[in-house]
């Protein structure tokens, strides 16, 4: 099997080896061609998708790597996911981007500089969140503005609606019947 050969002589869990099929031109059925293509694809996916650098990294570098990768978006044109999320193994965009981050971190660059470098080269669309400048700032500000507006409106409503009751209570002498109070309290506890 192509896969087994490529994966080394490790073989499977004691399964007998099957003879490799011959792929003479013209003799290959459609199903076999599909199978072959599937295997080649799996090979590409598994082998090429794996990051090239294998040097052990310190926990700190790994943390910085995650920090940078989370700020950047895969540029493959389809997923637009963070580099920490994009799961496509042979991704032509995320894989080299990840390798570049690791490389630059090992060279001593800061997360900020690495991210800025990507933005300078690719543009703002490489970022996973809007910036704090220009029109992008509205993305961050609007929820706060809405909260502030809402807070003002709700406070106004609460104060305005509460006023007539308070005024009525202040003007009318309240004679509290202890029995009614007690029953109200019981009712509240029950409900």
């Amino acid at each position: 099997m192509v896969l087994r050969l490529l994966a080394g002589r490790s073989a499977s869990f004691g399964r007998p080896h099957r003879a490799a099929p011959t792929f003479a031109p013209g003799s290959v059925s459609r199903g076999m061609r599909m199978k072959l293509r599937a295997r080649i694809l799996l090979y590409i996916v598994i082998v090429l998708g794996t990051p090239l650098s294998s040097a052990p990294e310190t926990a700190d570098l790994e943390k910085q790597y995650r920090e940078a990768a989370a700020q950047l978006v895969c540029q493959c044109g389809g997923c637009r996911e963070q580099l920490t999320v994009c799961g496509m193994q042979n991704c032509h965009s995320a894989t080299p981007m990840r390798a570049e981050i690791r490389e630059k971190l090992q060279a001593g660059m800061t997360v900020e500089k690495i991210v800025d470098g990507f933005v300078a080269r690719i543009g703002k669309q490489v970022l996973a969140a809007p910036t704090l400048k220009g029109f992008d700032l509205t993305a961050w500000i609007m929820p706060i503005v809405m909260f502030a507006l809402g807070l003002i409106v709700v406070s106004w409503i609460v104060v305005r609606m509460a006023r007539p009751a308070a005024a009525a209570e202040a003007s009318a002498p309240v004679i509290v019947d202890p029995r009614v109070e007690r029953e109200l309290k019981d009712f509240e506890e029950e409900s």
Partner: peptide, 10 residues
């Protein structure tokens, strides 16, 4: 005129 990503960090 630019489509951008608003992802988890936001």
């Amino acid at each position: 005129g630019q489509k951008m990503t608003v992802g988890p960090p936001f």
